[in-house]
Every structure is written in C-alpha cells, then in structure tokens.
C-alpha cells in the first residue's frame, strides 16, 4: 500500500497564495469566454427570433462547434494563434454559444403571445416592448443558459492546461501534479475546479430566484 497521504496539507498551507492565484486565473478563464459568448449569442438569438429561417443554420453551426472535443479544439488553434491566451479563450467561447443561443431563443419564445399582443395594443413601441417586456420575461431562461455555460466552462478550462502552462487556472495544478507524480496538486486542482463548478451552479440558482420574484410566488405552480 501507498503510505504517502493523498494530500499533503502542509504543502497546501505553504502555497495558499499560489492556490489563490490559480483560482483567480480560473475565474478569469471562465468569465471572459462566457461574457463574450453571451454577447455573441444575444446578437445571434435576437437575429434568429426575428428571422426564423436562420434558427436552423445557427443551431447547426453552434452545434458543430460544440461537437468538437475540447482538447482537439485547443490543439487545432495552436497553428493559428500559437500558445497565446486566445488559444484557450476562443474554443471556450464557442462552446458556450450552443447553450446560450438555444436558451436565449427559448427565452424569447417563452414570452406568451397574449402578453405581446396586450403590450402592442396598449401602445408600447417595439423598443419599449423589447426592453420592458421581452427581455425581462426571457431572463429566467437566459440565466439558466448562463448557469449551464459557466459550469461547463469551468470544467473545460482545466483541459486548456494540457496544451501548455501559460493559461494558468486550476488545470495547471493537475498537469503539474501528473508530471511530478504529486497527488496533492492533482487533487487540489481537480477538487477546487469541482467545488468552483458547484458553487457557481448554486449562485446562479439563487440569482435567478432573486431577479424573478414573479415566478417564485406562483399560486399553484408545479
């Protein structure tokens, strides 16, 4: 049996600032792609809801991007972007697109037709309708999409470290741990990325409840 402990807590306590730095990098590696992805998805989804024949092609294209396994996607970019930060950011961004576009479109479509008709009939301009009715009502599904995108990206961001150590993030602990056969680092990287994903998931559920008080207080909801 292996008598070395899986996790060397002494090492951990001596390297807390490294841990904090890598968590920070990981959050950055998650936030940037999700933010960019959300903006692109918002444009694509708004376009698709207004020009319905584009829904098919947009879904097919973002689906194709989603199908490429993460390690392959990072690898494919190396000849183009080298080992710059873009090599990690671009695939992580494209992964969010399918989820976000689909949820934003579903969000817009979830706005009941009678609500839109009432708004138009009462004299909302189309811009007022978008901002005051459609967007607020699409929020629950948008948030659900963001939640999924964030959690997925947290997981995929660890894979980027396989390509190289310049991206940082918790994947770097894992890779270094594997290279040096140091389980503490492996567990630290893996455990923290898992924890990060769950915390983000939880926070988004709270966020959604917080900003959609109307759906919480449903009379006889399911």
């Amino acid at each position: 049996m292996n008598d070395k402990p899986f996790i060397d807590w002494g090492w951990v306590s001596r390297h807390l600032d490294d841990v904090a730095e890598l968590i920070g990098q990981h959050l950055q590696l998650t936030a940037i792609p999700v933010a960019i992805g959300f903006l692109i998805a918002l444009v694509l989804a708004t376009w698709a809801t207004r020009h319905r024949r584009w829904i098919g092609p947009i879904t097919a294209f973002t689906g194709l991007l989603y199908t490429v396994p993460s390690l392959a996607a990072f690898a494919l970019l190396i000849p183009i972007t080298g080992l710059s930060l873009l090599t990690a950011i671009i695939p992580l961004t494209t992964y969010t697109l399918l989820i976000l576009v689909r949820n934003i479109v579903a969000g817009f479509e979830s706005v009941p037709a009678d609500v839109l008709e009432a708004a138009e009939g009462m004299g909302y301009t189309s811009r007022q309708r978008l901002w005051r009715i459609e967007l607020p009502l699409a929020v629950p599904l948008m948030i659900a999409g963001l939640r999924l995108a964030v959690v997925t990206t947290i997981g995929l961001a660890t894979v980027a470290a396989i390509i190289g150590d310049q991206f940082g993030g918790l994947g770097q602990f894992i890779t270094e741990g594997l290279q040096t056969s140091f389980p503490t680092k492996i567990y630290l990287g893996a455990g923290l990325s898992l924890a990060l994903a769950f915390v983000a998931d939880f926070l988004f559920i709270r966020l959604e409840r917080l900003i959609t008080p109307w759906s919480r207080s449903r009379a006889g909801g399911r």
Binding site: T158, I186, A190, S193, A197
Partner: peptide, 26 residues
C-alpha cells in the same frame, strides 16, 4: 442532471487515477 453537468471530465479522470493505482495490488 445538475451534478452530471457540473462535473469537469478532466478533474474526475485524474481523481480516479491515484485511486485506480492504489487499488491495483489489492
């Protein structure tokens, strides 16, 4: 569904590695 979505594949894989190695003799 929620948990399955939150689990990062790379993390799971490497976490299983030492366990798998550790259990080999047993």
């Amino acid at each position: 569904a929620n948990i399955g979505r939150a689990i990062p594949s790379y993390a799971v894989l490497v976490m299983l590695l030492p366990i798998s190695l550790g259990l080999a003799p047993t």
